[in-house]
Nucleic acid binder design. Sequence first.
DNA 1: TCTCAAGTTGGACGACCGTCCAACATGAAG
DNA 2: CTTCATGTTGGACGGTCGTCCAACTTGAGA
Lengths: 201, 201
Amino acid sequence: MTRMPVEQRRAALVEATLAVVERDGLAGASARAIVTEAGMPLGALHYAFASLDDLLAAAAAAVTEQERLAVQHLLAAPGAGLEDALAAGLSAYVDLLAARPARELAFLELTLQASRSRLGDPPAPGGYAPALALMAELLAAAAAAAGVRWREPVDALARHAVAMLDGITTTWLADHDTDAAHATARFLARALAACVTAPEG
Amino acid sequence: MTRMPVEQRRAALVEATLAVVERDGLAGASARAIVTEAGMPLGALHYAFASLDDLLAAAAAAVTEQERLAVQHLLAAPGAGLEDALAAGLSAYVDLLAARPARELAFLELTLQASRSRLGDPPAPGGYAPALALMAELLAAAAAAAGVRWREPVDALARHAVAMLDGITTTWLADHDTDAAHATARFLARALAACVTAPEG
DNA sequence: TCTCAAGTTGGACGACCGTCCAACATGAAG
DNA sequence: CTTCATGTTGGACGGTCGTCCAACTTGAGA
């Protein structure tokens, strides 16, 4: 392969890993499948990463950054009320899930694999932090746009929302019931909207 | 191995599979590891199941029956209010999760594997049905005990609750934050409790 | 142009995989 | 006791796995 900074090589391998896991599942994410996807020779993997597990861990870390970033522009609802804005954003995620289920499934597989490797860890705040921080920002912005204030810490609410998104995902993947997933999204929006003070108060 | 009805053999293999996945993860659930766990010879697997995938699918199906059954006696709160009863039950699940995380992780791994195999399926109501039915029963019983009635169909609320349990699980597995998981459980209990008519109405 | 350290490659290795099936054990029928 | 259909076993097979490393390419410095 042509000369290439190691950093760029690592990024390309991570991207190829995400593509392979999305297409063939975590079980199909072998060293050979990944380097083939990336158009690299077999040896390139152990030149950029110490082991395949290291690459999968890096891919899992990249996921929390990349995936939740796709949700970023979902909460860009116009001047509607807070609950409607939240419901629109969450429903947009459901549509994204229904349109590209393999992608969300791949993200869950990688996240779970990372969770297993950290099962016997100390407290371990974990790599979820970026997703939580992003969701907290979105919630804060949504409240500001609606002219209301959260009655509870946004960090706590953000964690509830992230958990609910995960649950919506696993449940939809199990039954493919898009209507029900939208209903769950509205349920969460209503629950979140119940945690604000009166408008302009 | 001593004579043994095929049905019993299948059940023993499914149980052994759950034990192996809990200990070593889905990646470690090889045919040899499973039959060793079950104390059976290698050939016994293909004598009771057509393939390893069939066994894993059977294990995934057994999970939805078995796992959610563990939650059954969690909602047995005394005469407290509905929200407190729900919160107590959901918090009990969080404690169960924190005490035996590998088990819940194994359940998720098997469920996700099953989800992947059904990715390109027709509508497919899926094997989630028993879990939903059980949760619906629990919610109906809880409302009856509190002397209130659900304002929405219990089936819909049950699906929200199951989704939230999954989300609580994946999130806790990522950050091991038991306090935050309890807070999310209370959040869900409050959201559910907001869906009833006034007591004794 | 020649040298050589650094970067890159793909074949080789041992281990493990799922599956199959020829050989073996078993217990009822004769 | 002998027969034999049925149930059971574990070794063998072809394949794929992750990893390593000897050989090759590259491009800057002498």
